[in-house]
Amino acid sequence: MPGLAELAALVVCAGSILAAAARDRGMGILGVTVALVAAPLVSHQIPELLPLAFREVAVLTGAYLLWIATGRDQATELRGESAVAGGPFVLLGFVTALVLAPALGPDRGPLVGLASAAAAGMAALALGIGATRLLPGGLGAIMLLLAASLAVTGLAGASGPLDHVVIGLALLAVTAATAFLGSPERPPVAVTAPAEQPNLVHDGGD
């Protein structure tokens, strides 16, 4: 559908700008989620319904896990006041890629795929560089993986159904890993599953 890929690319860019410029975790997760949801449509052909639905459900599930896992953390600030505003760099990356992409030759995917990849990549750098806490660093990793998947679309062309499923699983895996590791509490371990016992010499010794 003409125009849908371009519109989706603009939404990805907007989500990336929101994530890169966010100061609190809510806006950061929202920006990343917007970019993730719009990304499958950055293509010359609309994905099939089932793989598209799978991918969207996967990213929304991951975003939700990230939201509730980081909600228990007292700090809601994503980045400090002194952090560089990443929004302008994201836009610059998007426009630069749009201008330079035709130089790669005619046998490539949609130009907006590479532009979206550049936008997501710049957002990843803005979030990840200098990050000391798990949430901004993890959001940066998610945006970097999104950039990789969009680069595949921009370079190698439209993704097939299996590709969308794998991309959805990959994004879910990185998002879930960030949520999992960011969760401050762990369930207790029962007696039958041996707890951490670094020195078993003292257990049952004579």
């Binding site: 595949v152 190698a156 794998v166 895996a173 990185v174 879930a176």
Partner: peptide, 18 residues
């Protein structure tokens, strides 16, 4: 598709972080 295979390998790496 090798680029997608590398994405799958990266996903597996992330899950191993558990």
């Amino acid at each position: 598709a090798l680029p997608i295979a590398l994405l799958a390998a990266t996903a597996a790496g992330a899950l191993g972080l558990m």
